[in-house]
């Protein structure tokens, strides 16, 4: 009996691990955007750099990344060089989120501006439509304007290889 009893703790632990693993996949922080598979929301804002009116119709007609950033966001600065590099392969549209015009322009002047377009969203209105919880976030949108992927946090080569590339291959 004793011989069997000593295995009991291991068995209990194994069951717990099963639950934990399940729990990780249920992670409340991985918020699935309700917009996956949905068209990009309608908006009417201005371009940060030109001050001209921007609407959904002006977004690229090929797969592109929409990057939600702000000058107050430190991680945005971290991912910026990588996005600059990515912008040579595919268009990257900026969504300047809850920011001020001067701060955002200074930031771009200092770090470089790889963005094809720069949607200026000081009130976070479009951000709310997109279900943005914070910055940075990045969305992958196809040529028909349908959202395919949402990434919360930094985009780097690992995230690109693991998340963006597989989806990109299916929509190209």
């Amino acid at each position: 009996m004793n011989r069997l009893m000593v295995w009991l703790p291991l068995c209990i632990f194994a069951i717990l691990v099963g639950f934990f693993f399940k729990g990780l996949s249920l992670n409340p922080n991985e918020q699935p955007s309700a917009l996956i598979g949905q068209p990009f929301p309608v908006f009417g804002l201005t371009d940060l750099m030109t001050g001209e009116r921007l609407t959904r119709e002006q977004l690229p007609r090929q797969p592109y990344l929409l990057n939600v950033w702000a000058s107050w966001c430190i991680t945005c600065q971290v991912e910026h060089p990588y996005l600059t590099q990515l912008s040579k392969q595919m268009p990257v549209v900026g969504l300047n989120y809850k920011d001020t015009e001067t701060a955002a322009k200074n930031w771009l002047a200092k770090l470089g501006d790889p963005y094809a377009l720069q949607i200026f969203d000081p009130t976070g209105r479009l951000g709310l439509d997109l279900g943005v919880a914070g910055a940075p976030e990045t969305f992958l949108v196809d040529s028909k304007g349908v959202i395919h992927l949402r990434i919360q946090g930094e985009v780097n080569d690992r995230v690109y290889a693991k998340k963006i590339q597989p989806v990109l291959e299916t929509i190209q």
Binding site: V6, W7, L10
Partner: peptide, 17 residues
Amino acid sequence: ILGFLVIVIGGSLTLYA
């Protein structure tokens, strides 16, 4: 961390058993 836990706790409980 879960993987690490499995190795440490699972390993030690196996040795214990």
